[in-house]
């Protein structure tokens, strides 16, 4: 679970094309810099966001991404929500396995994104869409 209060207004980016995935990367970079993440941590969270936004587009049939800064009193961080109303994921353990893909990808998006962030929360069920929240804290 993600803790902490939001700083400032969350920023939303619709995801309906692969140009929007580029915009998500740029938005996440801007907010990660504002949250004072190190260069390596910025790179990790932007990479994770790129993977998850592409999934929102390709598998979720499009959706939205909401980016905000968080503060737990000790450190700042970035929190990102990826939401779609697509088919959902029936077998989550399988989907989170390295190399598993139903779309001819490398199958590293979900599993890799989870490794790259500090907190990873996913809510999904068949026919219920998919909501993934990730958080990366400054060190």
């Amino acid at each position: 679970m993600t803790s902490g209060v939001d700083l400032g207004r969350p920023q939303t980016q619709a995801v309906g094309s692969d140009e929007d995935v580029v915009r998500v990367r740029q938005l996440v970079r801007t907010v990660a810099v504002a949250a004072k993440l190190s260069l390596v941590d910025q790179t990790k969270v932007v990479t994770a966001a790129s993977e998850l936004a592409r999934n929102t587009l390709v598998y979720g049939g499009g959706g939205s991404v909401e980016v905000s800064t968080v503060d737990n009193g000790r450190k700042q961080g970035i929190k990102i929500l990826f939401a779609d109303s697509g088919p959902g994921i029936a077998d989550l353990n399988l989907a989170l396995t390295d190399g598993y893909t139903t779309g001819g990808g490398l199958g590293l998006g979900l599993s890799g994104a989870r490794r790259l962030v500090d907190e990873f929360d996913i809510q999904t069920a068949p026919g219920q869409g998919t909501r993934i929240t990730i958080t990366k804290w400054s060190r």
């Binding site: 390596v40 990479t47 390295d98 890799g112």
Partner: peptide
């Protein structure tokens, strides 16, 4: 660094 952690 990120590529390695991603698993690529």
């Amino acid at each position: 660094i990120t590529l390695v952690e991603l698993g690529l």
